[in-house]
Simulated assay, not measured.
Amino acid sequence: MAEPDPPFYVGYLKLPRGLRGFLAGVLVLLVILDVGLALLLFGGQKPHASGAWGTEGEVAYTGQFQARPYPLLRLAATRDRPAGAVLLADEGKIGAPDGLDELDGAMVEARGYPILRGDLTVLQLDQAPVRQDASVMAPLPAAAPEAAMLEGEIVDAKCYAGAMNPGEGKAHEACGSFCLYGGIPALFVTRADDGSLRWYLMAASDGGPVGEAARALVGRPVRLAGTISRGAGLAIFSVTPDQLAEVQSVERRMAAE
């Protein structure tokens, strides 16, 4: 007696009964493999560091206002905390409001919602800083600038502190560029020999903001030469706009080749 022909699938006909179990098993196996691969890839990704945003509600800081390179408060050391700085920003992708230069050097109170990441504090203001006429604060000490060559990444302070996740890297390139355009303070983030991250407030060589020249370099590794000024919990990395433009030009030539 001749053996029956094996089942054969034709697209416009019903699936033969003998193939249904086989295909069901294959589909189940593929789903298991797909889920397993997704979990493996997910588990292998490095988590993006982030900060805490406004977890304590509105807070107030009192310190010496500094207008350049970006609006910030310099905080003197107290019994409970070391000297430091609070960078200022507005809601959204906007820096501190205009018209604050007259407060430069004065003691002010700033209220808002802090974004905290390590020793970095960015305060999202809910009102303009208010001068404290009765308060006096001597200029904070600062060391002489030192020449430096740093490798790292340009980021905007607000997103890097925790307003966006991730707040650095290629995925944050467009967002970071818009934030710098809006006046959010620019940071240069480097990785120390022990693997820890360090940030520097960026400035142009004239002491002002780095401006448009830094926007095109956000989210990518760069090597920059400049000077570092340290004082009372704040380090400022100053670079020339010409150097930023030259780095951008070199990257464009390499991409074209």
Rank of each mutant, 00 (worst) to 15 (best):
A148P: 00
A67D: 14
Q132T: 15
G54K: 01
E91C: 03
M1G: 11
L27Y: 11
R253I: 09
E212Q: 02
F8Y: 11
R68T: 01
A213Q: 00
L88Y: 11
G167S: 01
N165G: 01
Q248K: 15
L150N: 07
R223G: 01
C175Y: 01
E146H: 15
Q124I: 07
G92Y: 05
A204G: 08
G95M: 08
A67K: 12
L187C: 04
D206M: 00
E246D: 10
S229M: 02
L244Y: 00
G207Y: 05
Q127F: 09
A89G: 00
D119G: 04
Y9S: 11
A24F: 12
A76C: 08
G182H: 02
V59K: 13
A186I: 00
P4I: 10
A76W: 03
L19I: 03
G176M: 00
R131C: 05
A85Y: 08
Q243M: 13
V247P: 08
G25A: 04
L103R: 15
L33N: 02
G25I: 03
E151Y: 01
V136G: 14
R17I: 11
V31E: 12
G63T: 14
R198T: 13
G21P: 02
V35Y: 07
D90M: 13
A77M: 08
L197N: 05
G54L: 03
E109P: 13
L125I: 00
E58D: 08
A106G: 14
G44C: 04
L103V: 15
G92H: 05
V239C: 07
P209M: 01
G57S: 10
G43K: 14
E257T: 04
G162Y: 10
S177D: 11
D90I: 07
M149Q: 14
A204F: 02
I94Q: 15
G25M: 06
A157C: 14
Q64G: 12
G176L: 00
Q248M: 10
R74L: 12
G95E: 07
S238I: 04
K170S: 15
L88P: 02
M202A: 04
L123T: 05
T190W: 06
R223V: 04
G152D: 03
L72F: 07
T121S: 01
V155G: 02
L27G: 11
